[in-house]
């Protein structure tokens, strides 16, 4: 990757972190409603993964979607506006934190039913196979989603029909408060692909460069072979499952230990050690992010509420 691209990745990771930190404050101030699941700690996963896609490749993910949206090129303004339920949000204020999408950026949504979007991702690939193109669908989901039937139906169909789907399990070690070992028959999620004769790999999700390399190889394979692939990316969320999680299921020492592997810190160090960027250049990126986020909050707060007439809009495409 070129220097500019690497600095762009750093920018994206810091942007996700700051957007969510500000989001958490706005949530606590009562300006954001519903559920909100923060991506903090997992930034290297979608940043490295989505950097490896072609613009024509589709991305679909679960409800922890703010970071994925930003990586796909949705603006911080529209993400923040959706969090505040405004008309200018990614889904016109009708989706909220868990439902951000922009089909023009090939971001096909955060989806809130655990595992529910996996068969839909397979369907994207059915559509692309039918259209005889070689687009890849990148479907992200948590470790918890691999225990529900949807996962297995989707993987079976993908392998049976030769669908171009990259299945990406973001293993952040817990499905809500239940550790992987307590819910899954196998500790290594990637093993589940073996049962479907599907190629698979595992990668350290705290290192954006490793994620990028593994994702690139996986996407190339899927496109070239016309076969699905499962990539397990091991990571950790530094915050609770959602806002207001009492976190009784894990010890603070465990969280602290993982925080020593902060993906932004690791990448910062990499860029400095490899002399790709100076401390000053990285400080400038961080300062720019502060401005962007301040602007996004301002944009969201001053944006209009959806008109009441929107209540009945877009239920159907045909009248």
């Amino acid at each position: 990757m070129k220097k500019e691209q690497l600095l762009d990745l750093y920018h994206q990771m810091v942007l996700i972190r700051r957007v969510e930190e500000r989001g958490a404050e706005l949530y606590q101030a009562g300006k954001i409603g519903g559920f909100m699941h923060l991506y903090i700690g997992q930034e290297a996963v979608s940043t490295g993964l989505i950097a490896a896609r072609e613009p024509r490749d589709r991305v679909i993910t679960a409800y922890r979607d703010h970071g994925v949206a930003l990586n796909c090129g949705l603006s911080a303004d529209s993400v923040m506006a959706e969090l505040l339920g405004k008309a200018t949000g990614t889904s016109k204020g009708k989706g909220g934190s868990m439902h951000m999408a922009d089909t023009e950026k090939n971001m096909w949504g955060g989806h809130a039913i655990v595992g529910g979007h996996l068969p839909i991702a397979a369907g994207f690939a059915v559509g692309d196979q039918y259209a005889k193109n070689d687009n890849v669908t990148i479907c992200m989901f948590g470790d918890g989603a691999t225990n529900i039937g949807y996962f297995h139906e989707a993987l079976n169909l993908a392998k049976t029909w030769g669908l171009r789907v990259l299945w990406v399990c973001e293993n952040n070690q817990y499905g809500m408060g239940t550790a992987v070992k307590r819910a899954s028959a196998v500790d290594e999620i990637r093993q589940k692909a073996e049962g479907y004769g599907m190629k698979n790999a595992e990668v350290d999700g705290m290192d954006v460069m490793k994620v990028y390399e593994a994702s690139k190889a996986a996407i190339d394979y899927v496109r070239r072979e016309g076969q699905p692939y499962l990539l397990e990316i091991n990571t950790y969320r530094f915050r609770g499952h959602s806002m207001g999680d009492p976190e009784r299921y894990r010890k603070s020492e465990e969280v602290k230990k993982w925080q020593e592997s902060d993906p932004i810190g690791i990448f910062n160090k990499y860029l400095l050690e490899k002399k790709i960027a100076t401390r000053k250049a990285l400080d400038e990126i961080e300062a720019r992010v502060e401005e962007e986020v301040a602007k996004a909050v301002e944009f969201a707060e001053t944006s209009p509420e959806p008109a009441l007439s929107e209540l009945f809009a877009d239920i159907y495409a045909d009248n």
Binding site: G123, G127, Y130, Y150, T160
Partner: peptide, 18 residues
Amino acid sequence: PIAENAIIGGAIGAAMVG
């Protein structure tokens, strides 16, 4: 396959992409 989630979910996905 006999997999109703994959059938309807898959059809939804294919419809969404045109």
